[in-house]
């Protein structure tokens, strides 16, 4: 197997994830796309770990999983709060930052 197989796969998944983050209006969907991004990063990390025969890449992937879990927890709490306050989770509607 080539290293590049995995790296390009992760790049493709990453960009799909970015597309999701950029186009979806649903807060939960955005969070799911972020998970996709984090997963592609994990594939990348583990591929390099296999390539360099270094275990630290895998440890980092584990840390990414843990961080992702924390991120989903906080993110979903925010989405729920948003839902409670506005009765929807449409990100396009959130423009109070507009100057």
């Amino acid at each position: 197997m080539l290293l590049n197989q995995f790296l390009i796969l992760s790049a493709v998944l990453f960009s799909i994830g970015v597309y999701g983050v950029l186009t979806r209006r649903n807060g939960v969907m955005v969070l799911m796309s972020i998970e996709l991004i984090l997963n592609s990063v994990n594939i990348n990390l583990v591929a390099f770990a296999a390539f360099r025969e270094a275990i630290s890449g895998e440890v980092f992937a584990l840390f990414v999983i843990a961080v992702a879990a924390a991120e989903v927890g906080v993110g979903l709490a925010m989405v729920l709060l948003l839902y409670r306050n506005r009765r929807n989770i449409d990100l396009a509607g959130i423009d109070s930052m507009k100057g």
């Binding site: 950029l22 990100l91 423009d95 109070s96 507009k98 100057g99």
Partner: peptide
């Protein structure tokens, strides 16, 4: 560009 929409900012950022 200065739309106040999070996602358009994110697109520019990316």
């Amino acid at each position: 560009i200065q739309s106040g929409k999070v996602q358009s900012y994110a697109a520019i950022l990316f």
